[in-house]
Design a protein around this nucleic acid. Structure first.
Lengths: 236, 236
DNA sequence: CGCCGTATTGAGCGCTCTCAAGCTAGGTGG
DNA sequence: CCACCTAGCTTGAGAGCGCTCAATACGGCG
């Protein structure tokens, strides 16, 4: 992994910012020598943050950019098991397993911050607010990507677009955004083919629900999109 | 909800047993008046433990029996979002939402134990071991049911059978067990139809991988079943 | 024994996949 | 500047898997 250390002062924040180990609040509570080891760095597009099956030691906070979680199937194919965006924490599932469940690969240039899990646990002991917060954060992961179980391709794609429109900008929805991934990656994540994704995109455009220019997406009728995401066909 | 209080001495254990509030270890640490409110009771088959959208207050530990997590879709249909078995804790996802995401309905007679979440958090503050344990438990939920995203019906069903063979007996695999649910429930959970489930069951039997007598399942060739679960067709 | 909900089996349809052929955008070199 | 190249995207035709609808078989229970 190529690592460029960057200035500490450039922190862009994440889900743990209110409890960040750099915060003055926490500095007062702990001796500074007990603060978690922390490094912040940038990886380039298509580079790997960590590899599947490697030993779990760090949680990663994404400050900027997007990542995909890639898992190898027994038959050799690779499936995308998750998408992660700026502000989010990566690798909660490894807490249980003890190793990373998947490889994390940058979809764009990515700025991350690594948190030593053991140090994190030490911090947790004397910080009840952080205890509550981390349970809250992990709990939120349980309902993520539940739309993947849908059997309808247009429904899955509508859900993904709504998901992206929120999560690409730290849960502030925007009706205009840039797809951080290829059609093939979208298809892989949704368990479809790139052809099907392409066909549904054109259908959505014909219905004037969205417009697409390369990777630039604009949601034109969010209510119509939400109806499809809810499994309600416009023409039942 | 009909509730039959039962004797405290009949506790059958759960994932939190090593840290149970009844444990002598913990009794020594806390004043007994600060111990979480706790009730243990039994609900009958098809009865509801809690309802979707109702206010989250309790986590539930299943001591005995099986439950399904049922969610209503906007179009009125109901989908099964999860299955829960003896020893497991229910409703982690509600921590984030503040309300229950789904209704929990008993597939069999069920014995549960309710844990007030606020009291649980209070307990957590002074118990670092429990802090680690609860993160471990919630983390384990993140990889649960990941096979639902598979697109192949036989693969999903093979995964479910292997899942059940483990989780029905507190993670001790048995090659012989009783299906706790109907074909329709299986189909609903796997996002298939009851007909497809039935057809695949007969195919699995013809291949001598399993035998079925009503709800009694016996796994005859676990390796063959695992190959299908891994997405490796026997005749590629 | 007869009833009714559940499970199995069959025939035909539709959605998504497969395979194959164009198309577009962005980059390279003459 | 433009011809070319390549990877990604789009579009089309046909096949396959799971769904729909319908009929039949089974099993628990009165």
């Amino acid at each position: 992994m190529r690592v460029s250390r960057i200035n500490q002062s450039t922190c862009l924040g994440c889900d743990l910012t209110p409890f960040c180990f750099n915060n003055e609040k926490l500095k007062q509570k702990f001796q500074s020598n007990s603060l978690p080891v922390k490094r912040r760095f940038i990886i380039k597009k298509n580079e790997r943050l960590f590899s599947s099956d490697s030993h779990f030691q760090y949680l990663y906070a994404i400050e900027k950019g997007s990542l995909k979680a890639v898992q190898s199937e027994p038959d050799g194919t690779e499936v995308i098991r998750g998408l992660y965006f700026a502000g989010e924490i990566l690798a909660y599932d490894a807490i249980y397993l003890g190793y990373y469940h998947f490889s994390a690969i940058a979809l764009t240039e990515v700025q991350v911050c690594m948190l030593d899990y053991q140090d994190f646990l030490s911090c947790l002991e004397s910080n009840p607010e952080l205890q509550r917060h981390i349970l809250y954060l992990i709990s939120s992961q349980l309902s993520m990507g539940s739309y993947l179980t849908s059997t309808k391709a247009d429904r899955k794609l509508a859900c993904l677009l709504l998901d992206l429109s929120l999560r690409l900008h730290r849960n502030h929805r925007r009706d205009e955004f840039e797809l951080p991934m290829s059609r093939q990656d979208i298809a892989n994540y949704l368990r479809l083919t790139a052809e099907t994704v392409s066909r549904i995109f054109t259908r959505f455009q014909q219905n004037k629900m969205i417009s697409i220019k390369n990777k630039k997406i604009k949601i034109l009728q969010i209510d119509a999109l939400k109806k499809i995401a809810d499994g309600l066909n416009l023409t039942p």
